[in-house]
Simulated scan of single mutants.
Amino acid sequence: MAIKLRALAAKIQIENPKSLRQKLARWFRQHGRDLPWRRTHDPYAIMVSEFMLQQTQVVTVRDYYARWLERFPDFNALAAASEADVLHVWQGLGYYARARNLHRAAKQVADLHSGQLPNDLVAISALPGVGRYTAGAVATFAFDQATPIIDANIARVIARLLDLQEPIDTKRGSEILWLTAEELLPAKSGRVHNSALMELGALLCTPRAPQCPICPIREHCRTKSPESLPRKKPRPKTIALAENCAWIVNDGNLLLEQQTGSRWRGLWKLPVIGESHPRNKLLLAFDYPFTNHRVTLSVYASRVPMESRPNQQWVPLTSIDSIALAAPHRRAIKRLAASHK
Rank of each mutant, 00 (worst) to 15 (best):
Y133M: 13
K171A: 15
T318Y: 03
S308L: 13
S298M: 01
I46C: 07
I239G: 02
G115K: 01
R21P: 06
I333S: 02
P216A: 05
Y96V: 10
R67A: 15
S276H: 05
D120W: 02
L35F: 02
P226C: 00
R132C: 06
A123S: 11
A242W: 08
V122P: 03
Q108A: 07
V304W: 13
P36H: 02
L69V: 03
S262Y: 10
K269Q: 15
E175H: 08
A123L: 11
T296A: 00
L282D: 04
W178Q: 05
G94P: 02
Q91C: 07
A79V: 05
P234N: 06
T134A: 07
P278K: 02
R71E: 04
H293M: 14
F72W: 03
C205D: 00
G92C: 13
A99S: 15
S319Y: 09
Y300V: 03
Q313P: 11
I248P: 10
K23F: 06
G131W: 00
R100I: 04
W314L: 03
L164W: 00
P236G: 04
I239D: 00
P17D: 01
S49F: 14
E182Y: 00
A326D: 07
V86G: 00
A77V: 06
L185Q: 09
L69E: 04
K341M: 09
H113W: 12
Y44S: 07
H220M: 11
L284F: 02
P186K: 11
A332S: 00
K341C: 09
G94D: 10
A79M: 05
P118Y: 03
E83N: 07
R62H: 12
S276N: 05
R62V: 09
Q165Y: 10
Q312L: 00
M47Y: 08
E257H: 04
A301F: 08
W68I: 08
S225E: 15
S174G: 09
E50G: 01
Q211S: 13
V122Q: 15
L297N: 11
K11S: 14
L102V: 05
C215N: 14
A99F: 13
T260L: 12
